[in-house]
């Protein structure tokens, strides 16, 4: 897994659905190994932006390039985790992960793929449930498996679309910690784009937060998040700098909403 030059560039990006402009004038870059949070209210097009980076949608105008190459469609250099743990329900959990292993290592035998998939599951704390089917797992466990599958692609980019949005607070916290641990633990680090509408989650996880406004969706502000890692929730939530940044972001979001209300 070489991450050399694995940065993302988005230039003058526009995306429209018929007459409706969803995204307009997006300029954004994410450098190699960086953890970027895309933060915005619903309707700001943050998920659409992620789908454009993933290559699941094609831009109306502008350019997305990953690792120096323009994105022309989905590719196994960009792993994606969706909000709704989209494992294939007819495959066992280990077979779901083994599909990703097969793409990263096409020459491996079936048994070797399963073994690696099993090891990947163990890394996210699912060593015991590989032979089960997704419907036998809780939501949190399914999302762990989806993360294991994304990691098994061994791709330099990791794109996550509100991956913990459907989880209860305890599972959400566990998976946030797991994600940071896995991201920091791999060398070189993956370039992560993480979509969320939760300010605290963005500040806990990311190196930088890009705040998005609505109608049309665009980046209204960017904030570096410089808190030392590893970050502890309890310490962070007492930190004055954390609260200051949180206020600033909330103000930026409110200002955008107000501007729209006045215009309407």
């Amino acid at each position: 897994m070489t991450h050399a030059g694995h940065s993302l560039r988005i230039e003058r990006l526009k995306f429209a659905y018929g007459d409706a402009t969803i995204l307009d004038g997006i300029d954004l870059s994410v450098h190699e190994g960086e953890f970027l949070a895309l933060l915005g209210p619903s309707g700001s097009g943050k998920s659409t932006l992620l789908r454009l980076i993933a290559g699941l949608e094609a831009p109306t105008a502008g350019l997305v390039s990953a690792g120096g190459r323009p994105v022309a469609g989905p590719g196994t250099d960009r792993a994606v985790v969706f909000q709704h743990y989209a494992l294939f329900p007819w495959m066992t959990v280990v077979d779901n992960v083994a599909e990703a292993v097969a793409k990263a290592h096409p020459t491996l035998s079936r048994g070797e793929r399963r073994e690696r998939a099993q090891a990947q599951l163990a890394r996210v704390g699912l060593g015991e449930v590989g032979r089960h089917h997704p419907f036998e797992l809780s939501g949190g466990m399914q999302q762990r498996a989806a993360i294991a599958r994304a990691l098994a692609l061994e791709s330099p980019f990791l794109l996550m679309d509100e991956p913990f949005g459907a989880l209860d607070p305890i599972n959400r916290a566990r998976l946030q910690d797991l994600l940071v641990e896995v991201w920091r633990g791999s060398s070189p680090r993956r370039t992560v784009v993480f979509v969320t509408h939760d300010v605290d989650e963005a500040l806990l996880l990311a190196d930088r937060v890009a705040v998005m406004g609505a109608n049309p969706g665009r980046v209204i502000a960017e904030y570096p998040v410089a808190f030392d890692r590893p970050r502890q929730r309890a310490a962070l939530f007492k930190d004055a700098g954390f609260h200051h940044l949180r206020e600033e972001i909330a103000d930026a979001l409110d200002a955008d909403t107000l501007a729209h209300l006045e215009a309407a």
């Binding site: 290559g55 792993a79 994606v80 969706f82 294939f88």
Partner: peptide
């Protein structure tokens, strides 16, 4: 979501038919 996942995992059309469309 199954279609998206198949594309993200880089499935060929035949793989998509066999592993996703047929069971679904």
């Amino acid at each position: 979501r199954h279609r998206d996942n198949a594309r993200v995992l880089g499935f060929s059309h035949f793989e998509y038919l066999r592993k996703v469309v047929f069971p679904a």
